[in-house]
Simulated scan of single mutants.
Amino acid sequence: MFQVIGLASRASRTQAMFRSLRFNSSNTQMNWVDFFKLRTESKRINVAASSLTSLMGAFATLAYLGNVEIDVEQPIFGIDPFMVLGALVVVGGVAGYLVGPSFGVRVFNMKNSKVLPAFKAKDQIFLQRIKRNRVDPSSQSFSNPVPDYYGERINSLSKYKQWLRDCNAFRRKTEEFL
């Protein structure tokens, strides 16, 4: 009973979102091909932003550590100082890499501001389809791995259809062999 109420409220929220999109934007209709192109573009922008911020973080850490006076003969926490400095530069690069997608999302939103409401609505529909059709990973094994649980590698209609076939094959294998 609680699931029916939850589904009904979720459906009414989705309908309200689509109604507000219909009145707030001029072009709410987006086909799946355009959606997957924008989704691929978003991922590429995020990777590029992560790469740039990773380099900036590593170089900023290196520039800071280059100005700090360190006695190279004294160990830091019992470790060679050059190893510690190298590890700090790597940590600065990793921190920059983690900050990158926040900049990438902003760049993508500014670049595609006209179609952003339609893209977000289509993305919500896509994620609901992924959630509805994905398999239960509790029965996975080395010989029967779960097919892309979050749908991250789906970037076209043909890959989505292949993902659906893979999910059905996974379900069939788990029913036959368990």
Rank of each mutant, 00 (worst) to 15 (best):
G66F: 04
L178R: 12
I76S: 09
F142D: 14
L52K: 06
W32S: 12
V47L: 12
I79C: 07
P137N: 03
F108G: 00
C167K: 08
D71R: 07
L116K: 04
N27D: 11
R44T: 09
L85D: 00
M83D: 10
A118G: 01
M110S: 08
K159V: 05
R153S: 12
S102R: 02
V115E: 07
P147H: 07
A87G: 08
A16G: 11
A60R: 01
D34L: 04
A169H: 15
P137G: 02
S143V: 15
K159C: 02
I70F: 08
D34M: 04
A49H: 00
Y160H: 10
S141T: 12
R10N: 14
R172C: 12
D136Q: 06
S20K: 15
G78V: 09
M1C: 00
N31L: 02
F126M: 05
M17V: 11
L55S: 08
T28N: 07
A63W: 06
F82D: 10
D148C: 06
G92T: 02
V90W: 03
R22E: 15
I45E: 02
K161M: 13
R172Q: 15
L88I: 02
P81C: 05
E73F: 02
D123I: 01
G93W: 05
I5R: 13
F126Q: 01
S42Y: 06
A11D: 15
L88A: 11
R10V: 04
S54T: 08
I5C: 09
M110Q: 05
T174Q: 14
F170N: 03
M110Y: 03
S20P: 04
Q29H: 14
L85A: 07
F103H: 00
F23Y: 10
Y64P: 00
E73A: 04
S12P: 03
A11G: 13
E176H: 13
A95Q: 04
L157E: 14
R172S: 15
S143A: 15
G100W: 00
K111C: 01
T40D: 10
A8H: 10
F177G: 05
K114N: 06
F126R: 02
V94P: 01
D71F: 06
N155R: 10
S102H: 01
V91W: 07
T174C: 12
F177T: 14
G78A: 09
F170Q: 05
Q15M: 15
R129I: 04
R39M: 11
K43T: 07
R171S: 14
M17T: 13
N144P: 05
I154T: 10
S54L: 12
S141A: 10
T61W: 01
M56L: 15
F59E: 05
I130F: 06
F36V: 02
T28M: 09
I130R: 03
P147W: 03
M83V: 15
I70H: 12
Y64H: 08
V4E: 08
F119Y: 14
R172D: 13
I70C: 11
Y97T: 08
Q29A: 15
E175S: 14
D123K: 11
V107E: 00
N27M: 09
F59I: 05
Y149S: 05
